[in-house]
Design a protein around this nucleic acid. Structure first.
Length: 398
RNA sequence: GCACGGGUGGCAGAGCGGUCAAUUGCAAUGGACUGUAAAUCCAUCGACCUAUGGUCUACGAAGGUUCAAAUCCUUCCCCGUGCA
């Protein structure tokens, strides 16, 4: 069970500031939710996440935790919170995204973000057998990324596993397809996601009835539809009318137009339930999402980019492995007051990266997460203060 | 002093007559990364140019053999090991 209250809105009627209340505390929205796929924010302890980053909540992944350590361990541990020593709110993603990342996107350089100019054609590979995920109308057959063993996910199985993992908010099992797929294929994914959403909801309610004494997670439905306005609106309308406690917006986008697509969806969704934009976290995309009605975001980009030497700065991003930082004794971002920026210089972190020291990933992850978490917090405050345009003018990258 | 072994691009280390401006790894330089297959991946890495091609300089040094040499021969200079 969660509840959601809206405190303030942008003049455009879409953006809002609110609070999600969960059994493990509140999330002040808009909020950026760091990703802990395998029940850990890579390179950080939960204390760092709470005290240095100031994150409200984390998001873990059903597919990965099911494979390792397995639901049995999660169950015996007392659930995700106890297992990973994170006392704040949690989400689990359903595993639906892995149907894409391990399926059509596997072994290719395909992102779910498309540049519209680069012709939208997909090469349906002759040899689909190399994929680690195959989707059909009933579910997804995965090969384990760990040992290659075969596993089957259906909407019901995903919901079962997510109940066992025990996050506060869980997502319906959906199908995410490549932005390069045809309109027809996108449409199939929308229909499949709709049918699966119904199955998820039925199964979720069945479990709730059986375990009425236990606190149950909140189930969030997922909207698909890719870059297509009619599909997005249709998906939002049908999913939005169902008895979910909140919604996730998934699927692929046109990089140049995320805000527009998000707006199509949010206009169709019920006002009083939180909306989560799945897997989006570039600073500029966060701003576009917020003003188009998004309440929460998750994204691996801040931590992954950090581990690979990239640090966000107000004007964009720097690559600490560039030669120019070897003797740069200024903070990562001179305007940032995170733990890393208060205590360490670019030259030191550049040295750590070149020396392949683990602390490089830790310090840079703290900074990048702080950067996006606080960007969104500032947006929230600006919405409340009625000064959003001023915020945007100051913080829009480039 | 004698006998072996060896000196290859920033480093390590392949190549042992033509397909070698030279395998590979590391380092270096730049790029990518959006619900984590990811502390990963990609590109470049002798110089110059009228650049999907061409010219020049290069494999310790200097000569030589050959149509052709990093690759064979001679001398020299270094390094390692063994014997005096």
């Amino acid at each position: 069970m969660i509840s959601f209250n809206i405190h303030a809105r942008l003049p455009n009627g879409r953006g809002r500031a609110g609070t999600i209340t969960t059994p493990h505390g509140k999330i002040e929205t808009p909020a950026f939710i760091p990703v802990a796929t395998k029940a850990t924010i890579k390179a950080l302890t939960p204390e760092m996440l709470r005290d240095y980053v100031g994150a409200h909540a984390i998001l873990a992944n059903t597919y990965h935790l099911y494979l390792q350590p397995g639901t049995n361990v999660l169950k015996k541990s007392g659930g995700l919170h106890k297992f990973m020593n994170w006392s704040g709110p949690t989400y689990t993603d359903s595993g639906g995204f892995q149907a894409f990342s391990l399926g059509a996107a596997y072994g290719k350089n395909v992102s779910k973000l498309a540049q519209v100019k680069e012709g939208i054609t997909i090469d349906h590979d002759e040899d689909a057998s190399i994929r680690l995920a195959q989707v059909d109308d009933d579910g997804v057959t995965f090969k384990s990324v760990i040992d290659g063993s075969t596993h089957r996910f259906t909407p019901e199985i995903s919901i079962d596993i997510q109940h066992t993992i025990g996050a506060d908010m869980i997502f319906a099992f959906d199908e995410c397809v490549s932005p390069q797929e045809s309109y027809e294929r996108q449409k199939t994914a929308v229909e499949r996601t709709y049918i699966w959403a119904k199955r998820c909801l039925i199964h979720h309610n069945k479990i709730k009835t059986q375990n009425s004494n236990l606190k149950s997670p909140a189930l969030l439905g997922i909207i698909q539809g890719g870059r297509h306005e009619d599909l997005r609106k249709y998906s939002a309308k049908v999913i939005g009318s169902m008895d979910f406690e909140g919604f996730g917006i998934g699927g692929s986008f046109d990089k140049d137009d995320i805000g527009t697509a998000v707006g199509w969806v949010c206009d169709e969704l019920p006002e009083g339930k939180p909306r989560h934009l799945l897997g989006i976290g570039d600073p500029i995309d966060l701003i576009l999402g917020i003003e188009n009605g998004i309440d929460t975001f998750d994204c691996v980009a801040p931590t992954r980019i950090a581990r690979n030497g990239g640090a966000y700065i107000r004007t964009g991003r720097i690559n600490l492995l560039n030669a120019q930082f070897i003797q740069d004794f200024t903070p990562l971002d001179p305007e940032c007051d995170c733990y890393t920026c208060k205590n360490y210089a670019r030259a030191y972190i550049a040295h750590l990266f070149r020396a392949k020291e683990m602390l490089a990933a830790t310090l840079t992850s703290i900074h990048n997460l702080y950067f996006v978490v606080n960007l969104v917090k500032k947006a929230r405050q600006a919405i409340i203060d009625g000064n959003y345009e001023g915020f945007k003018k100051k913080h829009l990258p480039k």
